[in-house]
Amino acid sequence: MLLACDVGNTNIVFALMEGIEVRSRWRIATDPRRTADEYAVWLLQLFALEGLAFDSVDQVIVSTVVPRARHNLTVLGEKYFGQAPIFAGEGPAGWGMEIDVEEPASLGADRAVNAVAAHAEHPGDLIVIDFGTATTFDVVDFNGAYKGGIIAPGINLSLDALVQAAAKLPRIAIEAPSETRSVIGRNTETQMHIGVYWGYVAMIEGLVARLKAEIGRPAKVLATGGLALLFDEQTDIFDAVDVDLTLKGLAILAEKASKPGR
């Protein structure tokens, strides 16, 4: 099996993959100081709960936007799984697509991985929205070339900034306002829910409309990330929601890297 490691700014997702299907997944807070031994102790218990041993892993792939996490994940793969990790976008796991932007090296690995998976599963022009620490909008053309996109503050970041800057505002859960679709809040907490949730929906719909107008051709909108399902409940802007898109992209790159004569 493949052990896929998706290292984000907030969390690391470890997943056991069979093909592009996720067999098991686990999430841990990102901490670049965490050692390979700490990861191993944690994973050992989780593998045991699934009735698996470390030797069931025959390949490890890592996508990271946190450079300081790279070394310890490399040691984890080599020391505990007997596999030198391959890194998304490097060597045999190169993107295999054109990165048509001004600074290709600055593109986050997670966004490129999403583009790989999206193009593999969906024909035509695509807009990929990933709800993570930041909310990113990525444009992939019908040939599979990455054309650029948008970076906006993630909804958690926006809410944290609001609460920290305004002493009297309470911390609220991120959820859709439950009672009605009214956008006239009758108390402080409801007004915050409306502002955070419907404000974010309006941003998504507005930016997608502008992206589609600039692309000039029909474009399918894909959503991924932990909060994608939350917004899918209240907008019809998404053509598909795939919370496993990044992991599928890692599996695609790992399979390409394992083929002889690549």
Results as ranks from 00 to 15, higher is better:
residue 1 M to G: 02
residue 2 L to H: 03
residue 3 L to I: 07
residue 5 C to Y: 03
residue 8 G to M: 08
residue 8 G to F: 06
residue 9 N to K: 04
residue 13 V to N: 14
residue 13 V to T: 11
residue 17 M to V: 06
residue 18 E to W: 00
residue 20 I to Y: 02
residue 21 E to V: 10
residue 21 E to P: 05
residue 33 R to Q: 15
residue 35 T to D: 11
residue 35 T to Q: 08
residue 41 V to A: 06
residue 44 L to R: 11
residue 45 Q to W: 07
residue 45 Q to F: 01
residue 46 L to H: 07
residue 47 F to T: 03
residue 49 L to Q: 10
residue 52 L to E: 08
residue 54 F to Q: 00
residue 55 D to L: 03
residue 61 I to N: 06
residue 64 T to V: 05
residue 65 V to R: 14
residue 68 R to E: 09
residue 70 R to C: 09
residue 70 R to D: 09
residue 74 T to G: 08
residue 76 L to A: 07
residue 79 K to F: 02
residue 82 G to V: 14
residue 85 P to G: 08
residue 86 I to P: 04
residue 88 A to V: 10
residue 90 E to H: 13
residue 92 P to I: 04
residue 94 G to W: 01
residue 99 I to W: 11
residue 100 D to N: 15
residue 101 V to P: 12
residue 102 E to F: 05
residue 102 E to Y: 11
residue 103 E to W: 05
residue 106 S to E: 13
residue 111 R to C: 10
residue 112 A to M: 14
residue 113 V to Q: 07
residue 114 N to V: 13
residue 117 A to K: 11
residue 119 H to T: 14
residue 119 H to G: 14
residue 119 H to Y: 15
residue 123 P to G: 09
residue 123 P to D: 15
residue 124 G to L: 03
residue 126 L to P: 05
residue 128 V to Y: 14
residue 130 D to H: 10
residue 132 G to S: 10
residue 134 A to Q: 05
residue 135 T to N: 00
residue 136 T to H: 09
residue 136 T to V: 13
residue 136 T to S: 12
residue 137 F to P: 01
residue 138 D to S: 11
residue 142 F to L: 10
residue 146 Y to W: 01
residue 147 K to F: 08
residue 148 G to M: 04
residue 148 G to F: 03
residue 150 I to Q: 05
residue 150 I to V: 15
residue 154 G to M: 04
residue 157 L to W: 00
residue 164 Q to W: 00
residue 167 A to I: 01
residue 172 I to L: 09
residue 173 A to I: 03
residue 177 P to R: 12
residue 177 P to H: 12
residue 181 R to W: 05
residue 181 R to D: 12
residue 184 I to F: 15
residue 186 R to S: 08
residue 187 N to W: 09
residue 187 N to K: 11
residue 188 T to P: 02
residue 190 T to W: 14
residue 190 T to V: 07
residue 191 Q to G: 15
residue 194 I to L: 09
residue 197 Y to P: 04
residue 199 G to S: 12
residue 199 G to N: 12
residue 203 M to F: 08
residue 204 I to Q: 00
residue 205 E to D: 04
residue 206 G to N: 05
residue 208 V to P: 01
residue 209 A to V: 00
residue 210 R to M: 06
residue 212 K to R: 14
residue 215 I to Y: 06
residue 218 P to T: 03
residue 226 G to K: 09
residue 229 L to P: 10
residue 229 L to V: 12
residue 233 E to R: 15
residue 234 Q to C: 06
residue 236 D to R: 02
residue 237 I to P: 00
residue 239 D to F: 03
residue 240 A to T: 14
residue 241 V to S: 00
residue 242 D to L: 07
residue 243 V to R: 15
residue 243 V to S: 05
residue 244 D to R: 00
residue 246 T to Y: 07
residue 248 K to S: 04
residue 250 L to T: 01
residue 262 R to V: 06
